[in-house]
């Protein structure tokens, strides 16, 4: 860490040059509590006898998921974790992310690692999470900055699909923010190469609202105002790949004009796709929840079946499938 201009350093140094036995106990410069001496810490080893600046050094390095439970430890922890210095230190350690990032990014798991792209206006970074090392790193820059995109994976390729244009792209005006909504970028994880410069787009000009990979194919749900279409992308055929129109999910009956639907889908094994559809209507909005419809697509038979509905109360549930 670079040496900072801390005004405390100089008097502190002078103090240390002239040892004063009376100061021995005042080892901790910033103490709201009585400064413990070395012998008192021997009786009770406590992290709370550290001065604020050292405790902040420690707290600012704790991974994000553990922060909420730390603020419940004691009042001092809660105050420190809410202080501007905490955020400043965290930013300097590179542990702070833009809040926008947490909202609408594309994520997918490939070969035991998690890849995240999009969702941020200021950065086009693609990040990789390694669960073994518990660490994130930036691996590449996406060719397009997308907000609200969906992620999918098939045969070791990370697909970043749909979303709105964000950031300062020279061509992007507010009016044509939707022009990438039907397109996708492909990133081959092993070689670290992005697909051809022209992004493949879903036929029919729909906005991609959900996608997942199963086997070597990517399945995409696209919305066309009051209609939803379902497509399969086959990357294997030729350089450009091929789109195949499939049976759309039977949710048109639930969609009403003025209503909104939110999709989330995930593959279950090699032959099934589960789609979670949140449909909000006037009645459900009054209840403060949305109707969650679970649909299962059988890839072999090519047909949709309706599963049990989601219990009332979920609003923006995400979906992950585990076979057991």
């Amino acid at each position: 860490m670079a040496e900072t201009c801390n005004p405390r350093r100089l008097p502190w140094l002078i103090k240390s040059c002239i040892p004063d036995p009376r100061r021995e106990a005042a080892k901790l410069p910033s103490g709201t509590r009585p400064p413990p001496t070395v012998t008192s810490t021997a009786a009770s080893p406590s992290i709370s006898s550290l001065p604020d600046d050292l405790l902040l050094e420690i707290l600012s390095r704790v991974p994000q998921p553990s922060i909420p439970s730390l603020s419940l430890v004691c009042r001092r922890f809660a105050l420190l974790l809410d202080s501007p210095s905490f955020y400043a230190l965290r930013r300097s350690h590179g542990l702070l992310r833009p809040a926008l990032h947490a909202l609408s990014f594309a994520a997918a798991a490939i070969a035991g690692r998690i890849y995240v792209a999009g969702g941020a206006a200021r950065s086009s970074a693609v990040e990789e999470y390694d669960p073994d090392l518990d660490s994130w790193r930036i691996i590449s820059d996406a060719p397009r900055r997308r907000y609200g995109c969906v992620g999918a994976t098939a045969s070791g390729v990370f697909y970043v699909i749909g979303g709105l244009i964000v950031g300062s792209s020279p061509r992007a005006g507010r009016l044509d923010a939707h022009v990438w909504a039907g397109t996708m970028d492909t990133y081959e994880v092993e070689t670290g190469v992005w697909g051809s410069r022209r992004a493949a787009s879903v036929p029919g000009g729909g906005c991609v609202v959900g996608a997942c990979g199963a086997g070597s194919h990517v399945y995409v749900l696209a919305s066309h105002a009051v209609e939803v279409s379902f497509w399969r992308w086959d990357a294997g055929k030729g350089r450009r790949g091929d789109w195949l129109r499939l049976e759309p999910p039977p949710i048109t009956a639930h969609l009403r004009l003025g209503g909104a639907a939110r999709f989330c889908c995930s593959a279950l094994g090699q032959d099934k796709i589960v789609a979670l559809v949140h449909v909000s209507s006037d009645a459900s909005r009054r209840r403060g929840s949305t109707d969650g419809v679970v649909l299962v697509y059988d890839i072999v038979k090519g047909e949709w079946n309706r599963g049990p509905d989601l219990p009332v109360g979920f609003r923006r549930a995400a979906l992950a499938c585990v076979e057991c």
């Binding site: 707290l59 704790v62 991974p63 553990s66």
Partner: peptide, 10 residues
Amino acid sequence: FAGMLKMKSP
């Protein structure tokens, strides 16, 4: 130290 604090209940 931070490693000692992670993934623990209050």
